[in-house]
Nucleic acid binder design. Structure first.
Lengths: 138, 138
DNA sequence: CCTTTGCACTTGCAAATCGCAAGCAAATGT
DNA sequence: ACATTTGCTTGCGATTTGCAAGTGCAAAGG
């Protein structure tokens, strides 16, 4: 059990109690936009997160009910992490972070994805939420 | 100059390079939703942030162009912090954090504000961005 | 079988950051 | 003149991070 301390009852503050660090949302990003689902896949991201931090954050996310951990279908030595509905509900936050980053910093992003988010934000949110639920990719 | 290291060129990652901690977005929250603009006002928030952390985060936000610092109109010993356009553009992120927190955690929030955000998100975003630009509240 | 490989962590440790309390300096109030 | 307000800065112990190395376990190869 990873108990988090709640600093106040403000919804923004309680959200940040869980999501407010440099790594947690990157894990969810990898699950939503890159279809990743295993420990090894998360480690391969460009930001190179440390193994102990990843293990810690996955434990927090599981204990907070944002994702579930299960033995992989193919190998017993692998685990598959999947988003719960509470985790899927993070997608709108990720989309806003993409838009703000793309518009106010030097970043690299697939132009068609950016256009998709800018012109039809709600539709794009629903699309990626559907993908995350179904886990259609690999 | 508070230089931040950029971990990758992913827009979510670069956004988190600036916003990814437990305090930065609370400062912006106080400016947008509570109309706060001074060091002393930020310190009075329910989350009780430490004075050195506040000073550090304000310096980062200023150097990253999210807010400006100016001597207050009434007193020379006071400073007034105001959001730039880059800072005002954070409002959609805050709104999504409010909605996620309110729907998935035990929080306290003015029911009429929650209803406003749920039924007319875009209109609410524009309203609070307008307020932050004009700083109509003292 | 027995060894090797891949995967998912765990551990140790130095360095950075945080959180708390106290101190400080300039502008203001009385 | 003296005390107070305001906006920080400093010191320091505790926590968290980042890096490297090691561990345990299951499947694959020989």
């Amino acid at each position: 059990m990873k108990a988090l301390k709640q600093r106040s009852t403000c919804p923004i503050s309680t959200s940040l109690d869980v999501l407010g660090d440099k790594w947690t949302l990157l894990i969810i990003r990898d699950m939503v936009f890159a279809g990743k689902s295993t420990y090894g896949q998360f480690l391969q991201s460009a930001e190179k997160m440390a193994t102990n931090i990843l293990a810690d954050r996955l434990a927090v996310l599981e204990s907070q009910g944002l994702l579930t951990k299960a033995v992989a279908a193919d190998k017993k030595s692998k685990f598959t992490y999947r988003l719960t509905e509470k985790g899927v509900a993070i997608v709108p936050i990720l989309v806003e972070l993409v838009l703000w980053g793309a518009q106010h910093s030097a970043t690299t992003i697939d132009p068609s994805l950016l256009a998709e988010l800018q012109t039809g934000k709600d539709a794009a949110v629903e699309k990626y939420q559907r993908l995350a639920r179904a886990e259609l990719r690999s």
